[in-house]
Amino acid sequence: MTSIDHITLEVADASAAERFYAEAFGLGDRVRVRASDAPTSGFRGYTVSITVSQPADVRAYVDSAVAAGATVIKPVATSLWGVGATVQAPDGAIWKIATSAKKDTGPARREPESVVLLLGADDVKASKQFYVGRGLPVGKSFGSYVQFDLKGSPVQLGLYKRRALAKDAGVPEDGDGSHRIVIGGGADSVVDPDGFAWEAAAR
Rank of each mutant, 00 (worst) to 15 (best):
P112C: 03
A200I: 01
I7W: 03
V132N: 02
L165Q: 07
G28D: 15
E23W: 12
K102Y: 01
D37S: 15
V52C: 08
E199K: 07
P193R: 01
D176K: 14
R109G: 00
G152C: 04
K125T: 15
L157I: 12
S153A: 08
G175M: 06
L27Q: 12
Y131D: 04
G152Y: 03
S178P: 06
V146P: 01
E23H: 14
L80D: 14
R203E: 11
I94K: 08
G26Q: 02
A166M: 07
V146A: 03
A202H: 15
R180M: 06
D5S: 13
G170N: 10
H179A: 03
G170I: 05
D5W: 02
E10T: 12
L117S: 07
A202S: 15
I183Q: 06
G69H: 00
I181A: 10
H6Y: 06
S100R: 08
S100A: 10
K151T: 09
R30Y: 03
A35T: 14
V190E: 03
K167H: 08
R34I: 04
D176A: 15
A202E: 14
G120R: 04
S49P: 08
S114V: 07
A35D: 09
S100Y: 05
P107L: 10
R34K: 15
D13E: 12
P193A: 02
Y145R: 06
D63M: 02
V146F: 04
V116H: 14
D168A: 13
D63N: 10
T99Q: 04
D188R: 09
V132L: 11
A24L: 14
K74Q: 12
R34M: 11
I94H: 07
Q54T: 13
P154N: 10
V83G: 02
K161L: 14
M1P: 09
D13K: 09
V191E: 11
L27D: 13
A60V: 05
